[in-house]
Write a protein that binds this DNA or RNA. Sequence first.
DNA 1: TGTGAATATTTTATATAGAGAATAAAATGT
DNA 2: ACATTTTATTCTCTATATAAAATATTCACA
Lengths: 227, 227
Amino acid sequence: MDVSDKYSLRGRVFNEIREGILSGKYKEHEELKENTLGQELGVSRTPVREALRQLELEGLVKIIPNKGAYVVGLTERDIKDIYAARSVLEGLCARWAAQYITPEQKKELSENVELSEFYATRGNFAQVCELDTRFHEILYQASGSRIMEHMLLNFHHYVERVRLMSLATEGRAAHSNEEHRKILQAIEEKKPQLAEELAHQHVMNTIQNIDNYGLKNLLDASGSTEE
Amino acid sequence: MDVSDKYSLRGRVFNEIREGILSGKYKEHEELKENTLGQELGVSRTPVREALRQLELEGLVKIIPNKGAYVVGLTERDIKDIYAARSVLEGLCARWAAQYITPEQKKELSENVELSEFYATRGNFAQVCELDTRFHEILYQASGSRIMEHMLLNFHHYVERVRLMSLATEGRAAHSNEEHRKILQAIEEKKPQLAEELAHQHVMNTIQNIDNYGLKNLLDASGSTEE
DNA sequence: TGTGAATATTTTATATAGAGAATAAAATGT
DNA sequence: ACATTTTATTCTCTATATAAAATATTCACA
């Protein structure tokens, strides 16, 4: 996550509002009033204000001076663009990971792939999702680039709902696991070029999968499960 | 810029601290105390706090809860990574610009290239720099992707000092202008693939130029001119 | 009934105050 | 003299108060 003091009031407020926007609890163009949010979350306006200012910077909230804060949220176009950006950036990230990964990270990545394959055969998709998230996070760290890590972590979290829904579609988890294994192998064999291509293709395949099912369908399905 | 109320106290405070970090006024690991900054800028601690929280999200400041805010700044590695990321993202952006650019944007881009060539022959590099900045900004807008625009605007600003120093090196302005013209042409002829390759190459050439002169030399030179 | 000025209400923006955490300094005991 | 506990100080964190801006409401008047 981005905010260091996750467990302070402000950190909690930030995360709650952010989740509220990403999950659709706070809807597009909705006004986020400091007082209301504060009461809702049981805090004063100060931490709410700070959280809103941060969310503005992330682009999830638009602040009109002396007027108010409004939910911006992510459009379909935004999500597609994020995937497009990820397709090239995850490639670059995997390239660097192949060059800079530490033995510990290599070990965790390898175990991650093993475990995910195990859970997939057992049909435990919740675990597969979590491991998928972690797989990519390890790559981000292994790139040794805080810029890359920062950027991709954000994106990853932005599209979390879509990502998990895509992974839950018929057969995608197994394919994803295969792709993870190939990426792992390229990294273990220190083949940056190959790792880049595979990671790029991995994201492109996800995009393809999302297109097949339709982004709207996936989002609606995930939205309804939460209510 | 990112903050909507550029001219409010908080907006001003945010920009001043940000510029202070990017320009090197506030040095790596330096502690940014709310009181001190507030007095320096003639405001109370509240707007300072909000600005610091935002800078944390941007990665320019590290906040340790209940302890303090510390300058993180950009390392050489960070700058190189930003350029690497830009090399692929500006490519993608140019591709989209070729697809979605409006006639007005096309016109401004064309005039921008003309003007820049004019100023370059006259040796007016300050103008060339400004036009270079604007050239890229137009492309970001023309991509029609607020995600892309947001990301690249940030990066662009992060490396502004390096970018301008690179543009000031022998012969680079002229080459840059040539590359701009080719990108413009690809966009006018609606060739997304070509536009992507050219924009990618444009950033790669800048990286090459920076490497030739040495990032440190460029940064030192720009730092000394400010003091 | 409709329009516009004047007033009231709501909400943001900034400053300040009090509580709590972390660090530095002083005092105490061995 | 050194280690440890206690005290003091500094600074953050949250809440609240005041000011200013924006919006909504009321009322007068045509």
